[in-house]
Design a protein around this nucleic acid. Structure first.
Lengths: 233, 233, 233, 233
DNA sequence: CATGAATGAGGTTTCATTCAT
DNA sequence: TATGAATGAAACCTCATTCAT
């Protein structure tokens, strides 16, 4: 579903070494990019951060742009599988459970890969069209999974949603904002608090306003009583 | 509350001309920045876009960074007044009305200044600290206004919200996403559709789950019957 | 003997005005040049210092280099006449008197035109060859006058000098150093002190070591007793 | 006593290479600066003179100003040690001998480093304050050494000088003029002639006018009979 | 006579990329 | 495999000079 098509030039033939080194490069480069931005970072900076010479860096990567691509691909590959598994897992759950599972998973991924999120947000526009589409597809896949869950919930009567796609979009948006707006949010909430409050808000927004869905409410967000304030954990 | 302090060097003393030309520069530069990003844009590009020579550009602006600042300041000045007036207007309304007014206003501003929004989002990190704070303050002010409205609604019983600050954050986030994620949203919704659906979703999310608030629902979003599908307008 | 040959373009036909304005330009420009140097000074700086617009400046001067030339020529013309008169005056004096007259005159000119001296010293190298020769000639003329005096003194037995040209060179050098090394000298001596001490030193250096010249010594430097310490005046 | 403090950025870590290259740059740059002046010289000119690309030049030097500093420092370091040794050497000599030693040493240094002298004279004013002080200190040190010698001579009765500091200043001035006024002097005298005549002139100027010092006269300037004409060597 | 907006060549500096060792 | 010296295109910015008003 997500795949790195582009071939990147290398002077090495030891595939395992190449993979290892590239991972190292990606990890270091992202740090360099995060302060100062992609354009301002020089290959010398990156090489230094990697503990390599510029020459060696060019053995594993053929241009600065390649590193951007590697970062994007890495991120995709890393989480792509996760979303595939998530989709499967959710397929067997009742919609509310699935939604809770999805939220917890997605928000946690965002939390754990903040740097990538922030970075990709900043530079997505600069990726060559082709690479940008890879990111785009990954996002769409994740959105479709969530959309599916919501749709099932609407059909089953557990959810009452005017536009499931937009709802899914909102839910993901709020998750990503934990990374995008971290300078605002992190000083006010812990991740667990954020996750808890937002989960409750989302449930309230998607559930029917009265009657029907009442029964399932008790499973909401890890079986916590619906009004429990998760803050202060 | 929001103020452009910094002085920008100019070689001209004709204030009116300077103002005019700077506005022109800002308008053109933003377009240049939007494709390719701030760093990639050269002063030559900008000059060309403005229909000036590089030299003349430097009569009105002393560096590329100045243009960034001008864009930010312009945006702030333009909308700063708006939010002040909005705050006042909302002060005399019942919370639900005020919320609707706020949403319509904010989302419309985002819609009409998309380019600025997208651009500022990309480069906020690159602004010198001082200038960044100006943006930050503006955002916080707008957030506080909304937070106040929500709080009043909670007190009056019109709203049922666990964390008003986070709710305000979410509402603004969703509004900005009309600009930030336009490549996704604009091909699926018109602005009016987007505004309608999201308004309904927000109302559902903030209203008490049953009983009390029910009466007001009929005024929701410009008196449309609550279940009307705004799509397809 | 010294003449400005070069024609400088002007748009004005009122010769008197042109002369006046050029004098003004020279006076102001020299100040600008003195802090920051010729190359660093911009025509805008100069125009501002003159209280004119750049455009008007170009009515009286056709290039930045022209100003350099004007300064040099002005200086030459101003002092050229002076040296002519000096030469005549000295022709009728006994050598020692003539020497004293020369020293006092030259050192005073240097003192009163310090800015010119310092400035010309710095930029002489940058003047176009032709203009540089004008300065060169002026210097040589002044040197010849002094050389003549010394020679006469040697013939008359008042002076005992191995090489009169070199001696003349030394005397002028010491005079110019009041301007060239002013940061060192001005904080230690007043001009009068400097003039007095150096005059005495020069007299001692040029007079015969014993016998003959002894008589005249009493007229030395304004009839001061030879051992008087001029410092502390 | 004289020290190069400032660190200059370099991209190379091979210290030996950096030192070598910088020396090369200094040697070439000085030539470029000497015709046309510091400001007119472009980095491209300098790079060409060095036989390097502009880029490589910037590996060893971080700005044009750095080159100025390197030249100044080089000069100081080279001669600084020399003056220290000279001071020591002179300490054990009788004043007249010391004076002769000093003159010969200083004038020779000026002769051998003409380019530096002329250049530094032109640009001293442009050096950043801090760097200028280094030059200033070096000069003052050299002046103090000479002043000390003259003072000792006055005490011992070998010299008769009204103001030793000013005398020292004059002696150095005359030495430097061999470089500063070379276009005038070099076509008239060889260095040895110049040294000889000026030495004699200085001796005559500092010695008592009669009696006392007479004995030592025979050692004057390398034991040459006092009236010998050194010209024509 | 007077202005200052406009130009564009040219200066300094940076940095992605190559390649000899 | 590994290095870092070397390149040169291209960026930002300045300023002498012109010319319409």
């Amino acid at each position: 579903m997500i795949s790195g098509k582009r071939q990147i030039r290398t002077f090495s033939e030891d595939e395992k070494l190449v993979r290892e080194r590239r991972r190292h490069i990606v990890d270091c480069a992202i740090k360099v990019f995060l302060d100062g931005g992609y354009e301002r970072a020089t290959m010398a900076d990156i090489a230094r951060a990697c503990g390599m010479s510029k020459g060696l860096l060019y053995h594993y990567v053929s241009s600065k742009e390649d590193i951007l691509y590697l970062i994007a691909r890495d991120q995709m590959e890393g989480t792509g599988a996760g979303f595939g598994a998530l989709a499967e897992r959710c397929g067997t759950m009742v919609p509310t459970e699935a939604l809770l599972e999805y939220i917890r998973y997605y928000y946690t991924v965002v939390h754990e890969t903040q740097d990538y999120q922030v970075f990709l947000n900043q530079v997505a526009a600069k990726l060559p069209r082709e690479d940008r589409l890879v990111l785009f597809d990954a996002n769409n896949f994740a959105l479709d999974v969530l959309d599916g869950i919501l749709r099932r919930g609407v059909v089953s009567g557990e959810f009452e949603i005017e536009d499931t796609t937009l709802a899914a979009h909102n839910i993901m948006l709020i998750g990503r904002s934990w990374a995008d707006r971290r300078w605002f949010l992190h000083r006010r909430y812990t991740f667990e608090q954020y996750l808890g409050i937002q989960t409750n808000a989302i449930l309230k927004a998607v559930r029917p306003r009265r009657g029907a869905g009442a029964k399932e409410r008790n499973e909401a967000y890890g079986s916590l009583p619906e009004d429990s304030d998760l803050r202060g954990t």
